[in-house]
Write a protein that binds this DNA or RNA. Structure first.
Lengths: 160, 160
DNA sequence: CTCAATGCAAATCTTTTGCATGCTA
DNA sequence: TAGCATGCAAAAGATTTGCATTGAG
């Protein structure tokens, strides 16, 4: 956890400085938190976690860094409908992570899932190709989310 | 259908009062605005439009009504990434509207599209069935959005 | 009549901005 | 050293809440 000593540590720096951004202690710490957490965190959660290691960091830096990371494509931003954004690393030392989210509309729990690459690819290829032509739109990414009731909330709501 | 003289105004009332909610002038006005606009509006846009017809309405009522409409499934809420929510009628006098959104990440323009019911159905059936089983999750709705550069922004960015 | 719905003002909460100072490249 | 980056405080917005009043059923 935390610090990797081998070559893996700088997997993101090339991309980051390639955009003309400087590699600083706060930025390093934020990426480290995201990489360790391996899940979607709110800005506040990131702020709290980073402060444990680097107590002087400000909220501003967290937001600004997340924004930069978003621009480089290293971080993806999500809205699960509870009024605060969530952030997660879209790549890691091991390459891209591909998954989507299953959101419980009752308790807010979010489940990550994967495993539909093939079906998804088929569908997206058709739609993206067609939309690109029809609207002369250059599609760069997509968002797929499912909403419903999780196991616990189904039980509690008697709505099986 | 036969009884809707004035612009099909009461197609939604059954559903609404079925939930135990009262049919009031402000609520009628808000739904009317949404039905007339036929597109995603922000709370503020709705507020402004409703005020033209019903000048005393408050922001609070707009938000509270949109929330209720969301609960009944009459209205869907979207986040296009610009910090304010958008709302649109998910059904109308003519039944459900089925479409998704294509968002320009540069200028924020949002295009509605439809016409992939078949492909989408195939894909969603597979995924939803599998996810329901795997996580014992009752899926009630999904969100699909595409992001990229619209025609104008492609040109301006020289990134064709 | 009763209690849900409304409107106003104030509060909340997340995210952004201005600016003097610090630190990377 | 030159600017980008940081942190603080304050601002900006969107949305929500408290409460007295109004009105639908």
């Amino acid at each position: 956890m935390g610090r990797c000593r081998n070559r893996g540590i700088d997997w993101w720096q090339g991309r980051f400085s390639g955009f003309g951004y400087r590699v600083t202690v706060p930025r390093r710490a934020i990426i480290d938190v995201l990489a360790t957490a391996q899940k979607h965190l709110s800005a506040e959660e990131i702020y709290i976690l980073v402060r444990k290691v680097y107590p002087n960091i400000g909220f501003t830096t967290v937001y600004r860094t997340l924004d930069l990371l978003g621009q480089t494509g290293l971080v993806a931003k999500f809205d699960f409908g509870d009024g605060r954004a969530r952030y997660e690393l879209s790549q890691g030392p091991g390459g891209k992570r591909h998954h989507h989210h299953l959101v419980c509309v009752d308790c807010g729990r979010v489940i990550d899932y994967d495993g539909f690459e093939q079906e998804e690819k088929e569908f997206l290829d058709k739609v993206e190709t067609s939309l690109s032509k029809k609207f002369n739109f250059k599609i760069t990414r997509h968002l797929i989310q499912f909403y419903g009731l999780c196991e616990n909330c189904r039980r509690q709501n008697n709505s099986v």
